[in-house]
Nucleic acid binder design. Sequence first.
DNA 1: AAGTGGTCTAGACCACTTT
DNA 2: AAGTGGTCTAGACCACTTC
Lengths: 246, 246
Amino acid sequence: MPTAARDRAPTFSPLYRQIKALIVASLEALEWRPGDMIPSEMELAARFKVSQGTVRKAIDELAAENLLVRRQGKGTFVASHGEARTQFRFLRLAPDEGEPSYPESRIIEFRRQRAAAEVARVLDLKSGDSVVYLKRVLLFAKRPSVVDELHLPGGLFRGLTAERLAEGRAPLYGTFETDFGVKMIRADEKIRAVAADAAVAQLLEVPTGTPLLQVDRVAFSYGEKPVELRRGLYLTQHHHYRNTLN
Amino acid sequence: MPTAARDRAPTFSPLYRQIKALIVASLEALEWRPGDMIPSEMELAARFKVSQGTVRKAIDELAAENLLVRRQGKGTFVASHGEARTQFRFLRLAPDEGEPSYPESRIIEFRRQRAAAEVARVLDLKSGDSVVYLKRVLLFAKRPSVVDELHLPGGLFRGLTAERLAEGRAPLYGTFETDFGVKMIRADEKIRAVAADAAVAQLLEVPTGTPLLQVDRVAFSYGEKPVELRRGLYLTQHHHYRNTLN
DNA sequence: AAGTGGTCTAGACCACTTT
DNA sequence: AAGTGGTCTAGACCACTTC
């Protein structure tokens, strides 16, 4: 049978990318939730009326983008922040000695407030829209090592309260996806060296002026939608930010 | 024709990975140099006696790893550090405002010396082996912004002299690949915040104690071979280290 | 027109996991 | 044994670049 053409965008888009977009739409609509198995390649091929190889290529790309995870013999699954595999993808601070571990979190402040102009701009909101503000200290092996400030769109995190996060050792992004259906896909970070001010120095139990890593993050969900603005101040006396250039 | 089996490693390795290894071997042997076009998929398929699709899958992975670059209608080319595309893959310091640019370099020190224990360990040399030591200042828009110290295996960089690098605006890794056949593939970085000591502060024209980003890099060539140890101290008052988490 | 990579199909068979 | 993803093939045709 000759190649199916279907509705082709004015600028040529191959079939497998259209299939890919359909799968992403299903992910976004939570037809399959994080951790779920999606239909087999043959089933999807039947649903979309294309060959298995075309579905395969679409899934290949989604797996490369960490939206899906393939497990031979088992099936293809929706990636989840609850898994060890994904655990350290967004947590780049590692101890100088020993294995990476997940930190303990202490909430310093939690409130809903009106978005300042800068926050609104980055999160694609209107100035004055509701925003969740969260300030935490992260402790690695009982040692306070990070001071974090987060801004989240209020509309996406309706039931979020301080109690719900309290004393959590659970990954924050895992909570976001299971409790609020907000899936973090990608993040951009800008890193600088700064001196600790008095307030931060006290929280981290170091002298004022101690050099800290300042990590400004914007995290995105499906469709490049910004859903988190975060500033982290990292104490790097026993830890470092690890990165790989490919 | 049934599937060719060939010499199969004890743990199963698919054909396309064996093909991939053969292509990497040719790259390593400089059969095709950076910037060169490699043979077409059909030619390689004939050479290796496999189908075009199998060669294609091997090349797909090599392109994903940035060892090869595909150009539709033209051919497949060996990736080169001389291209704009690759330019900023290993240069993560970007100005807060405006477009990234390539810095001017000033050499502060250049000499050959015996490898200290730590340097030898990281570069996989013997203690006392010859090592090239290079210290530079990088200037963005006339502003000194980085102090860099590099250690390179002496054996790989035989003809390297200070004159050859002098006042170079050319990318260092481009020089390495064209002049010495050493191709940088991947690098690991560990980032910390530190305070500028007197010597560095003078070079960067800032007060002693100014917070700086300390970036420790180990760069690798083919086969995970370490070929560079580098420590950079970045002034982040008008620049930042950019990163994307996927 | 010819040559390159890019897409799509259909079918066979392999490797891994579960029943 | 059945179901899943993984590999490999052979052939057709499309899109892009160059001659």
